[in-house]
């Protein structure tokens, strides 16, 4: 339920346990998690990619969840981390969007404003030692064509860039993106680049899946693709020749 104060809804109790000595412990780790989300700006706007897996620890528990969601007309959210917290965040944002619709005054919160709002929410929750355990990418494009890409993590750190990746993506995809990204990427090039990164992530991140979604935000609005499989090639030399037994740590 949306309270009308500018500070916004304070909803969701979070998990809490009380110990015998009177101390309380809130969420200290995520339970059901999504892995990396990638985001890049390109010629017409901004594009996100994520797989559709929600893991329970190391178990691939839910294989068809959406981690890229639209908010209103021009904003996309991509989430890694605790999936239930993401669902809660989306409910909150839906409330805000319905408020905009109800106002009917021709104004809708811009991607940058939603990014700032999420930063406030995340930072506020972390200051209560009860964080929402997500690493979010916020992407969007205003009607005039200005693209926005920013990230907010579970302690309220916020950061904007032309290329962003959460989780393992920060280690495995960002180096590729840094090498291949340019501001004038065509839509097809942008998609191919993200697919390459998602493929690498599937090869090397044990919490990743080869079933992915791509979403784009342009001046025309937002589109989230259906989930589809990325091709993999397991006959590559580095995969087919086990390093075990040789004088290494045994990994690829």
């Amino acid at each position: 339920m949306l309270c009308h104060s500018a500070a916004g809804p304070a909803r969701g109790a979070g998990h809490a346990t009380a110990a015998m000595d009177g101390t309380r412990q809130h969420t200290s780790q995520p339970i059901v998690t999504g892995t990396s989300v990638l985001g890049i700006k390109y010629k017409d706007g901004v594009m996100l990619a994520a797989d559709t897996l929600a893991s329970y620890g190391s178990l691939a528990r839910y294989k068809n969840v959406e981690r890229l969601k639209p908010v209103g007309e021009c904003t996309l959210i991509g989430a890694s981390g605790e999936y239930s917290d993401f669902q809660h965040i989306m409910e909150t944002l839906e409330d805000y969007h319905q408020y905009d619709v109800n106002m009917d005054d021709g104004f809708e919160r811009s991607p940058a404003e939603i990014y700032n709002l999420l930063r406030t929410i995340m930072y506020n929750r972390r200051n209560k030692f009860n964080p929402l355990w997500n690493y979010l990418l916020i992407a969007g494009c205003k009607k005039d064509g200005t693209a926005f890409l920013g990230s907010v993590d579970h302690i309220g750190t916020c950061y904007e860039d032309n290329i962003l990746a959460t989780g393992f993506g920060g280690h495995l995809a960002l180096p590729i993106l840094r090498k291949k990204w340019r501001p004038d990427l065509e839509e097809g090039e942008a998609r191919a680049l993200l697919e390459d990164c998602m493929r690498v992530l599937f090869y090397r991140d044990c919490r990743a899946l080869n079933r992915i979604q791509i979403a784009k935000a342009t001046a025309e609005g937002t589109v989230v693709s259906d989930a589809y499989k990325v091709d993999t090639e397991w006959s590559l030399a580095s995969f087919s020749q086990p390093k075990a037994g040789q004088d290494t740590d045994g990994s690829w």
Binding site: A6, A7, G8, M103, D105, F107, S110, E113, L117
Partner: peptide, 17 residues
């Protein structure tokens, strides 16, 4: 209200609201 809005959204408030 204007200051709160600026803190939460980083922008100035819509006058109508």
């Amino acid at each position: 209200e204007c200051l709160n809005h600026k803190y939460v959204y980083g922008t100035t408030m819509q006058a109508s609201r």
